[in-house]
Computed example of a mutant assay.
Amino acid sequence: MHPDMMLVTGMLLVVLSLPAIFAAWADNRAPRVGALVLFGGAGLVFCAFREREGGYRLQDVPDAVYGVIGQILN
């Protein structure tokens, strides 16, 4: 998988896991599924940083997001 795709997918999973975690805590349940999705997304982000030479800077993230969106739309 391309590092940009891993980065964007990981960030999306991290963002989507937060409502599941908060909902579980609000219902006094253990946030198992949310935590698994959070760790999976964080793992993808970590792998993306390791795969790309030099890693990512904060200025590189929007270009990666737009590049992945462009790949999906084409």
Rank of each mutant, 00 (worst) to 15 (best):
D4E: 11
M6W: 07
L7R: 07
V33P: 02
Q71E: 14
G10S: 08
P3E: 12
L58H: 09
A26M: 01
A35Y: 03
G55H: 00
G34R: 08
A64P: 07
P62L: 11
G55C: 03
I21L: 06
R57C: 13
F22L: 11
V14I: 14
L12A: 15
F39A: 14
L73G: 14
D27P: 04
L16F: 15
W25P: 01
F22S: 07
V37P: 04
R50W: 11
F39P: 01
F49D: 03
V33L: 00
R57A: 14
G40V: 00
W25H: 00
A42V: 04
N74C: 06
V33C: 00
A35C: 08
N28G: 08
P31H: 14
I72Q: 07
R29I: 02
N74M: 04
L18F: 11
M11H: 03
G10Q: 10
L18P: 02
N74H: 07
L58S: 14
L44H: 05
A48P: 01
N28V: 13
W25D: 02
E53P: 08
F39E: 05
A20Q: 14
V8G: 03
N28P: 05
A26W: 03
A20H: 15
A48F: 00
G55A: 02
V65A: 01
D27W: 07
V61N: 09
L73S: 14
V61K: 08
L58M: 12
L7P: 04
L58G: 12
L36G: 10
L13Q: 10
R32E: 09
L18W: 09
V45C: 06
A23E: 07
E51R: 15
S17A: 06
V15R: 13
I21Y: 03
P31I: 15
A30F: 13
G70Y: 04
M1S: 12
G43C: 05
L38S: 05
R32Q: 09
R32H: 10
A64D: 09
G40L: 08
L13I: 13
M11D: 11
